[in-house]
Simulated assay, not measured.
Amino acid sequence: MAVRHGIAALMALGITFGLFYLMQYLISMGSERGADIRKGQVIEFVRLKRDTETQTRKRELPKKEKPPEPPPPPELQMSQTDAPDSDAMAISAPDLSAGPDLGSGPNMGAPSDSDSVPLVRVPPQYPIRAAERGIEGWVVLRFTITAAGTVVNPEVLDANPKRIFDRAAKRALKKWKYRPRIVDGVAIDRVEEVKLSFDLDDI
């Protein structure tokens, strides 16, 4: 038993010394590596001197050369045969002294005569009282057609029944338009007569 304890103690001492040696070796290796890392972080800055002197270059422009002068135009010589002959170019103008005889033909500008022609006829308005009572009738009027084609001076010549349709007939007649009568190319006044009927069927 004593021998076994002695061998175990020797082995324990050997292992202990081996561990101490290994730890010392590792510590020494770590310190050397840290020193190398610290040395590698040192950076040296070197400032270079800047050359302040600059060189200037002068740019020379090329000289312009004068363009060559154009040659003078050739002289053209015209012979007498090239010039046009004034006698040959003369053209005889027609004689306009004798114009056409216009007096022998018929006179187309003579004025023509024409009678008055109605252009606008406005029908009379049926009186309300006559329509309500069922009254019908007629009116004969005399009036004047002026040279301008208007109607003036309407006058009642006869009516049936009396004084029922006179005002409506005159009012409508004043709105009529005519082409006036022409005598010797001049418009003149003309007096005419007309009969206006008032029928309930026309309402």
Rank of each mutant, 00 (worst) to 15 (best):
M1W: 08
V3K: 01
V3Y: 01
R4N: 07
H5F: 09
A8P: 03
L10F: 09
M11R: 14
M11V: 14
L13K: 07
G14E: 05
T16G: 11
F17R: 06
F17S: 06
G18Y: 13
Q24P: 01
Y25G: 10
L26Q: 14
L26G: 08
M29C: 06
G30R: 14
S31K: 13
S31C: 07
G34N: 13
A35N: 09
A35S: 13
I37V: 14
K39A: 10
K39Y: 08
Q41Y: 13
V42E: 10
I43H: 09
F45I: 08
V46R: 14
R47F: 08
L48P: 07
K49A: 08
R50P: 10
T52V: 07
T54A: 05
Q55G: 03
K58F: 08
R59Y: 06
L61T: 05
P71Y: 00
P73G: 07
L76W: 05
S79N: 13
A83L: 15
P84I: 13
D85E: 09
M89F: 05
P94S: 05
P100C: 13
L102Y: 15
G103Y: 08
G103V: 15
S104W: 11
S104M: 12
G105Y: 06
G105M: 13
P106M: 08
N107I: 06
N107Y: 09
M108W: 11
M108P: 11
A110T: 14
S114H: 04
S114K: 07
S114P: 05
P118D: 02
R121E: 13
R121I: 15
V122K: 10
Q125N: 12
Y126S: 04
I128C: 04
I128D: 10
R129K: 15
A130F: 07
R133K: 12
G134K: 14
G134V: 00
I135Q: 02
I135Y: 00
T144G: 01
I145T: 03
A147K: 04
T150M: 05
V152W: 02
V152E: 12
P154E: 09
P154F: 01
E155P: 02
D158Q: 09
F165S: 00
D166I: 11
R167D: 14
A169N: 01
R171T: 14
A172S: 15
W176R: 00
Y178I: 00
P180D: 00
I182Q: 00
V183W: 02
V186K: 06
D189S: 06
R190L: 02
V191C: 04
V191T: 15
K195Y: 07
K195N: 09
F198N: 02
L200S: 03
